[in-house]
Design a protein around this nucleic acid. Structure first.
Lengths: 232, 232
DNA sequence: GACTTGGATCCTGGATCCAAAATACAGGCG
DNA sequence: CGCCTGTATTTTGGATCCAGGATCCAAGTC
């Protein structure tokens, strides 16, 4: 059996690498939302010509990290409450359904999730925020992959770029961090016990809680950018 | 009030147009799945240089219509049962949830949907397949937009490219066409009557029925291409 | 003094050019 | 007779070049 997929990441090797650089820069907070991105600057900064930069910008724009109009500098997409809200509504729909499916179907392999949960708890104790974000993503991505639905895996991989961005912008929230991995464990437990309805509900609650928390925190600290939208 | 969106379609005007051309060609069935796509050919054929073609290919690859490895001609993505199945699982999760939300929330505007249903029934009578596909998409897209969730609108817009492709490949199925618009009407009716659970179930059933039908038809007629995957 | 208009500069989009990787074909060898 | 190998051709990826549109600043006008 050969898997014909496994493709996906790069294409224009250089363009993809440039895109990854810019993506990280946006995630990291350099390149704040709303800031304009000049092709030549990036090219010089990364030591490549403008060509791969253009491809990278196109790619990132497809991912929704950049907005662009013809003949204008691209600018980093803003993160607003609407985005967070929409993102988590989608997640709630997808994940509660998917988790139910996993519970109904035999052969769910719990082990990798147990490992992730253990690692997650460790990261919570050590207050390792970046690791927590990565592990959270790994956990949920693991669920998508367990379902064996390529479409969902791909779609959600695209959305996790934004989810990570939101998480990185909001950061900490110590109280909530505790709960996350309990909820994860509850979900896995319900799936393992083949309790579909219960798993579904647990997943839905998990996402709704995250959404509520993020919206609360984000609402308090409005986007650290957005230079007063000119009402011209 | 200014709307900052409205962006979205083009970027590199020419590249976007080229992408649209190729997209149509794939939809139409020229460029069958698995066929290789040479940049220079397309450029010559469309009377542009290779540059916008490269951007278009990048775009289409992002959409999942093309696969590419570095230094190799891109090839048109295959349509297999896995894709159809995954696509409709996603739709079921998203749409049944979304329809429930719409029903719970006041202010749903039925009119545009009634119009679409009427037009759909007309198209059924006239056996106008392309129109049916367009109207089906308009109906569901209308639901996404009614929910006011930008993320879902965007994600599903990306997926409808594939859905349309599948529909175009499978084509007719006279018996089923009748039912579609009855089911659409039932969904709209349930939303309008604020019966969330009922709307949700109706939407789920609608998608599952479509999925079953497509898989059955598609399974019978295996993809009209795929030159025996070389097991080198 | 504020607004408009002209021009210079900057930036992007597209075309062309060049190098490197892959494919195809032909000839040689087992 | 089939397989392997070396070379020519094709095709992509990246760099450079050129033209059109946008922004910005300053001078002129009301």
């Amino acid at each position: 059996m050969q898997l014909q997929t496994l493709n996906r990441i790069p294409v224009d090797v250089l363009g993809a690498r440039v895109a990854q650089e810019i993506r990280s820069a946006i995630l990291r907070g350099d390149l704040p939302p709303g800031s304009r991105v000049k092709q030549e600057d990036l090219a010089a900064q990364l030591g490549v010509s403008r060509e791969p930069v253009r491809q990278a910008l196109l790619l990132l724009q497809g991912e929704g990290l950049l907005h662009a109009q013809p003949n204008r500098s691209a600018q980093v997409a803003a993160v607003d409450r609407q985005l967070i809200s929409g993102l988590y509504e989608l997640r709630e729909a997808v994940e509660s359904s998917l988790v139910g499916t996993l519970a109904r179907r035999p052969g769910f392999d719990v082990k990798p999730f147990r490992i992730l949960i253990a690692r997650g708890r460790t990261a919570v104790r050590q207050r390792d925020l970046p690791a927590l974000i990565d592990l959270d993503m790994s956990f949920h991505t693991g669920l998508y992959e367990a379902a064996g639905n390529r479409v969902i895996v791909e779609v959600m991989r695209g959305q996790w770029i934004h989810i990570r961005r939101v998480m990185a912008m909001v950061l900490d929230q110590a109280a909530y961090r505790q709960k996350i991995w309990d909820e994860h464990e509850a979900i896995v437990h319900a799936i393992h016990a083949r309790r579909a309805a219960s798993a579904s509900v647990a997943a839905g609650r998990h996402i709704r809680a995250a959404r509520k928390m993020l919206l609360a925190v984000f609402g308090a600290a409005p986007t650290p950018c957005c230079p007063s939208p000119t009402t011209s």
